[in-house]
Computed example of a mutant assay.
Amino acid sequence: MSQGDERGYGGNEPGGRTEDAYSTLGGTRQTRTRLPGGGEDGDGYGRRPTRNSRSLIMAVGVVVLLIAAIAFANQGGGDGSSGDNGKKPEAAGAGPTAATGTKPVQGKNGTIAAGFAHDEQGAQSAAANYAVALVSAEILQPDRRSELVPQIFVAERVSELEARFDQAYNKAFLDKVGLDEKGIAAPGMTYVSRTAPVGTKTTAYTDASATVEVWCTGVFGTAGVSSTNPVSNDWFTMTLALRWTGDDWKVDSFSQKDGPAPVHTDRTASDADEIAKAVEEYGGFTYAR
């Protein structure tokens, strides 16, 4: 599952996971990944594990909580103006599975990539990396969230979004998903929220703004023997309205919707210790178009 089902921060479009202005960018080539130091570590996301009905009901219950919190945070704000202004991108000559081969990013702003190219490829790379940050475990932690939001959003939206995130992920919400007021899981438990972009598509582009759709999969939940929110897999598409500001692409608004999702095959689920160990041992990627 993703952090929320109906998330869209600050657009004037109808709220919800399918329509709000805060969401992923399309092109005609496949997303490639670049490891952060040239190492060989990487994230692998398996198929949805088989569960008994009790675990499934508990997982669905937590998804509903996340949806409600995101919907609350998405109320009001923003004009979503960057979403549909500008030309529709034309299909490139290369096939949809070809990577661009251009260096994607010049540096990092904290833990998030920064310095994206001022072109469609740069916008897609930015959208992919911002999607990962927006559906991370750290976004639920107040201390980390105060660092991440200014790195992701345009400056004039930061204060508004910080307040809405704080309201959405308040203590009552964190209690319901098994986290303390600092967004930390109980001793012996590991909260997991790891997203992997599968591809990107540009739906609108100008030199000043871009709209990008990011198709994602990921693993979400709490790993632990007594967890009532078991780690499961989800597929979703995030649409991000980006603006070129301060010599970089930043998010003006985003939204999220379900799928496209493949058929899941039966597969024995890993135990909680194995999942927690994987999250601790396998580092994340910097994503590039």
Results as ranks from 00 to 15, higher is better:
residue 281 E to R: 07
residue 250 K to I: 02
residue 240 L to H: 05
residue 283 G to C: 04
residue 78 G to L: 01
residue 122 G to S: 01
residue 284 G to Y: 09
residue 44 G to H: 12
residue 104 P to Y: 00
residue 109 N to G: 09
residue 100 T to K: 13
residue 106 Q to H: 12
residue 221 G to R: 08
residue 6 E to D: 15
residue 43 D to S: 14
residue 279 V to H: 13
residue 227 S to F: 08
residue 157 R to D: 04
residue 279 V to A: 13
residue 285 F to I: 06
residue 42 G to S: 08
residue 107 G to I: 08
residue 228 T to W: 06
residue 118 H to D: 06
residue 11 G to I: 00
residue 273 D to K: 13
residue 273 D to V: 15
residue 183 G to C: 03
residue 74 N to D: 13
residue 210 A to M: 14
residue 270 S to Q: 10
residue 181 E to T: 05
residue 47 R to D: 11
residue 156 E to Y: 12
residue 28 T to A: 05
residue 171 K to L: 02
residue 171 K to D: 15
residue 141 Q to R: 10
residue 90 E to S: 07
residue 198 V to K: 14
residue 70 I to V: 10
residue 243 R to Q: 12
residue 130 Y to M: 13
residue 133 A to K: 05
residue 40 E to S: 08
residue 94 A to N: 09
residue 66 L to D: 09
residue 288 A to I: 10
residue 41 D to R: 03
residue 238 M to C: 07
residue 199 G to T: 07
residue 267 R to C: 09
residue 243 R to W: 00
residue 37 G to M: 06
residue 150 P to G: 05
residue 197 P to W: 05
residue 247 D to K: 08
residue 126 A to K: 14
residue 244 W to F: 04
residue 146 S to W: 04
residue 109 N to L: 12
residue 120 E to P: 06
residue 1 M to W: 09
residue 2 S to V: 14
residue 79 D to E: 01
residue 86 G to K: 02
residue 256 Q to I: 11
residue 256 Q to R: 11
residue 221 G to D: 04
residue 37 G to D: 12
residue 1 M to L: 14
residue 253 S to W: 06
residue 33 T to F: 02
residue 212 V to R: 15
residue 166 D to I: 00
residue 191 Y to I: 03
residue 233 N to Q: 14
residue 275 I to K: 09
residue 50 T to S: 10
residue 7 R to W: 13
residue 258 D to L: 14
residue 121 Q to D: 15
residue 89 P to Q: 03
residue 255 S to C: 03
residue 145 R to A: 04
residue 193 S to I: 00
residue 136 S to L: 03
residue 58 M to T: 15
residue 43 D to W: 15
residue 178 G to A: 12
residue 119 D to P: 11
residue 243 R to K: 12
residue 43 D to L: 15
residue 261 A to P: 02
residue 116 F to K: 02
